[in-house]
């Protein structure tokens, strides 16, 4: 479970950034008073246009960024006070596969398993399960730099799930991927839900959200514009389709 309360994130702007943004403000407010809850066994979607504050919010949830104020609870752990403890419970995946090109998939998985302090026996079982599930056996010994985008994405998924996290955070996971590769991610999100994990993912594609999520929040300019269940969203929408309703809410 994830509990977020009154989350706020400010960034200090450098002189160059002030110039680029044409502002004299020394502080940029990226996320302002955001509160929500994600339940275990459900998929929560953070929807918003580019620059809305989705990535900043998810980076705070995954403890890469420290909030300026507000609270985050990850699987019962105060993630602001005890980020290292919280990280043990989190799996984090982005669309841009951050992998080491000169290592092989097996080396990367072993490395991350060691960083998450997964016991060897459990690691080997998880590896066997994930390699079979993702059909990775054929390219385990090849270097990442020689793999296709789809193969790399499978390695990323395996890396994210090796420690069997309770909470899985996906930051625009299908961004820039082809349909077949994106399908792997969609399948993974469904599997996580079936396993009772807490899943949060960000997207700007309404159709993807419609396909997967149970609850959603729409974020724009750092603030929440809507939050509720997907069923409620569908029932109470004023526009003719989901995408138009999303645009209507953002422009409101």
């Amino acid at each position: 479970m994830i509990k977020v309360s009154h989350l706020r994130k400010e960034f200090e702007l450098s002189r160059q950034q002030q110039k680029e943004l044409n502002t004299s403000d020394k502080i940029a407010l990226a996320v302002n008073d955001v509160s929500f809850e994600c339940q275990a066994g459900k998929v929560y979607s953070l929807l918003g246009p580019n620059g809305a504050g989705k990535t900043t919010t998810l980076r705070m949830l995954s403890t890469i960024l420290t909030p300026t104020s507000g609270g985050i609870e990850i699987a019962g752990i105060d993630a602001v006070k005890y980020p290292q403890e919280a990280r043990k419970k989190i799996g984090f995946l982005t669309g841009s596969t951050g992998l080491y090109a000169r290592l092989t998939p097996i080396e990367i998985i072993d490395y991350f398993a060691a960083l998450y302090q997964v016991p060897n026996k459990e690691r080997d079982e998880r590896k066997k399960y994930l390699f079979h599930l993702l059909n990775m056996e054929d390219f385990l010994q090849k270097r990442i730099g020689k793999l296709s985008t789809g193969m790399k994405q499978k390695v990323s998924i395996c890396r994210t799930m090796i420690h069997n996290p309770e909470v899985v955070i996906f930051d625009e996971p299908t961004s820039g991927l082809d349909v077949i590769t994106a399908e792997n991610i969609i399948k993974l999100i469904r599997d996580c839900k079936d396993q009772g994990k807490t899943v949060i993912f960000s997207s700007h594609i309404m159709s993807e959200v419609d396909l997967l999520c149970d609850d959603l929040a729409i974020i724009h300019k750092g603030a929440l514009k809507y939050q509720g269940s997907m069923t409620d969203f569908r029932q109470h929408m004023e526009a003719t389709n989901l995408t138009e309703e999303f645009i209507r809410i953002v422009q409101r």
Binding site: S62, T63, Q84, F92, G98, L115
Partner: peptide
């Protein structure tokens, strides 16, 4: 540049 630092920072190491 490669974006690997982000994944490394989500692991439970200081």
């Amino acid at each position: 540049e490669r974006g690997t630092i982000e994944t490394l920072l989500t692991t439970p190491i200081s």
